[in-house]
Design a protein around this nucleic acid. Structure first.
Length: 422
DNA sequence: CGCATTTGACCTGT
DNA sequence: ACAGGTCAAATGCG
């Protein structure tokens, strides 16, 4: 085992957000410094809670512009507020200007509400023929009628989902820290039952998605997260109103479960010059019991650019996956990044991002080829361990840089890192 | 005047 | 030595 990364990150809790604009998180901050960061075009601004002195609140954050066009800002929060001065509920900023590019994270939550009206399955316009013929794993079992329950469609219309509505640039909602938690069916210890449950849920979801919007792809993550909840990645396109779609999904039940939808947004500014570039693929697979674990190609089907994929990473997937791996036998997640461009385009803090987002310290336990600077240095025989990979990207040494970029072979060879929770 | 930001210096860990 | 985080005096603003 090669331990290239130590775990010496700050003890305090950190989290990172990447947004298209500066977000108002509801707290009052006071700037206390700014710093030019190595290899960054823009300075990093440091803020502390205004009530640090009054109330001893130790929360800080720093904000850095990481992209110009379109602008993107990375905000890292360090520590939690102990003050009592939240001005409003912290918003989740979901931003996209491309209405054809929408993803929604879905989780199954054990039924906690009883006020929702149950619809007779026979009244549901479900068609159960699209998957059984082609894929056994997605087969629909007509004996397992799983009714979709929708509460009153307050401002939710199917027509509103697809056409003519301008998508809001931002959707604000309260934080949901209980995301990606579990369903009874999925968390069952009975594997057969669980598998069956997954099957009908998949089928259900396919049906459901067909009803509420044009679904592009869907992935049911097999692992459950910390709290044991199962979750699904689904991607829609041609969604007229995100809000409507979100509402619609959130008032839906599948069997005994409430569907919880959380929107994950991607934005893809399509420039002419980029149209022909090969689609980048970020493949995340589960290394524990490698052969049994699914390879999650989260982004291969997404119409994204290099920069966007970085944002996508920042927003959700690794965190979700990692949460789902936590408390399982899975020892880590392998992240293959098959893009030279990603490495070159300002993603020098990917590793940091992953660590921050996962809210824990991760160790690199293995690498394939080179990932970012540290792995790369290891390839070169550098044995110096360092926990901060960001400061050494790009490599200071010209020799290393040349090696890293030579022949542009990054794509062919791939870069990867296996992370382990320590 | 009071409070916030700016900015170079200082501190800390590697 | 260096990078990044923080301090605090100077400065700006309503």
């Amino acid at each position: 085992m090669i331990n290239l990364f130590s775990t010496c990150r700050k003890n305090s809790r950190t989290s990172t957000e990447v947004t298209s604009f500066l977000i108002d998180d509801g707290h009052v901050w006071r700037k206390y410094g700014q710093k030019q960061i190595l290899n960054s075009k823009h300075q990093r601004n440091y803020y502390r809670c205004t009530y640090k002195i009054d109330q001893g609140c130790r929360a800080t954050k720093h904000v850095q512009k990481i992209m110009d066009n379109p602008p993107k800002y990375k905000t890292t929060y360090i520590g939690q507020h102990t003050c009592d001065n939240l001005q409003r509920a912290p918003p989740i900023i979901l931003d996209s200007s491309d209405p054809s590019d929408t993803s929604i994270l879905l989780s199954f939550e054990t039924m906690g509400f009883t006020e929702k009206k149950q619809i007779d399955p026979s009244q549901c316009s479900l068609k159960h023929n699209s998957y059984s013929s082609s894929n056994n794993h997605l087969s629909w079992n007509p004996n397992k009628q799983v009714p979709f329950i929708k509460s009153d469609p307050v401002s939710v219309t199917s027509s509103g989902l697809n056409h003519g509505h301008q998508r809001p640039l931002a959707v604000h909602s309260g934080y949901d820290n209980g995301d990606m938690t579990s369903s009874v069916a999925y968390s069952s210890m009975n594997s057969t039952y669980a598998r069956e449950g997954e099957e009908w849920n998949k089928a259900d979801l396919h049906e459901l998605f067909a009803e509420v919007g044009e679904k592009e792809d869907m992935y049911v993550v097999r692992k459950v997260c910390k709290v044991g909840r199962k979750f699904v990645f689904a991607r829609f396109f041609k969604v007229g109103s995100l809000h409507v779609l979100e509402n619609r999904l959130n008032i839906t039940r599948i069997g005994n479960f409430n569907l919880r939808a959380k929107i994950v947004m991607f934005k893809k500014p399509i420039s002419e010059s980029k149209k022909e570039s090969k689609r980048d693929e970020w493949v995340l697979d589960v290394p524990s019991e490698l052969t049994q674990s699914p390879t999650v190609n989260l982004l291969a089907s997404l119409n994204h650019t290099v920069d966007e994929s970085f944002v996508i990473l920042s927003l959700f997937e690794p965190q979700s996956l990692w949460l789902s791996f936590n408390n399982t036998n899975c020892k880590g997640v392998k992240i293959d990044i098959e893009s030279k461009n990603i490495i070159e385009s300002g993603s020098n803090s990917i590793f940091e991002e992953v660590n921050d987002l996962m809210g824990m310290d991760l160790n690199c336990i293995n690498t394939c080829k080179f990932f970012i600077a540290r792995d790369f240095m290891a390839e070169e025989g550098c044995t110096k361990a360092d926990d901060d990979v960001t400061s050494t990207f790009p490599p200071k040494s010209k020799k290393l840089r040349d090696f890293k970029y030579k022949h542009g072979k990054m794509k062919d060879e791939g870069e990867g890192v296996i992370l382990e929770c320590v």
